[in-house]
């Protein structure tokens, strides 16, 4: 297709993308709007004589929440990788008895609505005194990612040629050594995909945060926004500025890791 024939499609594509991303634009626009202009009719379509007052509120009120979310996200990634990678190695390469049943359980585990898990966790954490703790939230958030992570890792490791494994064995490597020095380094792409999604899901989680961690000193950013809406629902520039800041991880992901993101969306749904 020549460039000349494709430019109407490009224009149409730009328009469609513009429509799709309008809410994102509007979030940014509102985050810069002055409080006095907030209820103006018609609204300011562009942030002319904008203000960074909203972002100043973010710096003032939301930094601890952001820190907690970062901690929870990283903890979730670590826990997910520790649990999922060895399991996937076994499922993909070691033919465990009952492995298929385990894969089936993992698939079904993905279907369970988070709100139901949240109720069970709430009952357990209440008895154990784990409510409002970062560790408790990390465990709960990891349940979103672990089944997905095992499936992604398994699909990836199944593609490692058996000869590679065999060569390691001939060289005297045991199963653990083969996993650690051969399978894991080769699965770098799967590790990146899993880490990205585990972090993003933990960062975005609202169900577990609002049920298990709503009262403590260390609350994640999703609750920061939620309480902002509840407490001062007049300062929408501050709310939207927080939303913009909370969207930064997703934006960074899109920019630096688009191919891993697409891989994560499609695997499990479509076979190549």
């Amino acid at each position: 297709m020549t460039a000349q024939r494709s430019w109407p499609r490009t224009v149409l594509g730009l328009v469609l993308t513009g429509v799709m991303l309008f809410p994102v634009y509007w979030m940014i626009n509102v985050s810069f709007t002055r409080q006095g202009d907030m209820r103006k009719s018609p609204p300011n379509w562009f942030p002319v004589d904008g203000t960074v007052e909203g972002y100043r509120s973010v710096l003032r009120d939301q930094l601890p929440y952001l820190g907690t979310s970062l901690l929870v996200g990283l903890g979730t990634v670590a826990l997910t990788l520790i649990v999922a990678a060895p399991a996937a190695y076994s499922l993909a390469k070691l033919n465990p008895r009952g492995g298929r049943a385990l894969s089936f359980v993992l698939l079904m585990a993905q279907m369970i609505p988070g709100i139901i898990m949240a109720m069970g966790f709430y009952a357990i954490y209440l008895n154990l005194g784990l409510l409002n703790s970062v560790a408790g939230l990390i465990v709960a958030d990891s349940t979103i990612a672990v089944p997905f992570a095992v499936l992604i890792f398994t699909a990836f490791m199944a593609g490692i040629p058996d000869e590679v494994m065999h060569a390691a064995k001939v060289d005297g490597a045991g199963p653990w050594r083969t996993f650690w020095s051969v399978a894991l380094p080769v699965s770098r792409n799967a590790t990146v995909t899993v880490s990205l999604f585990a972090f993003l899901w933990a960062w975005s989680d609202f169900v577990y945060a609002s049920t298990l961690d709503s009262g403590g000193a260390q609350r994640p950013i999703t609750l920061g926004i939620y309480h902002y809406i509840g407490n001062n629902n007049q300062e929408w520039n501050a709310i939207m500025a927080t939303a913009v800041v909370a969207s930064i991880p997703a934006t960074v992901l899109i920019i630096i890791a688009q191919r891993y993101v697409a891989a994560g969306v499609t695997s499990g749904a479509v076979k190549d």
């Binding site: 993308t17 979030m27 993003l200 975005s204 939207m240 899109i254």
Partner: peptide
Amino acid sequence: LFLVPWLLPLIVSAST
């Protein structure tokens, strides 16, 4: 760019 709405935290999309 079309992926953006899917990757935003739900609370962000919902409040927007």
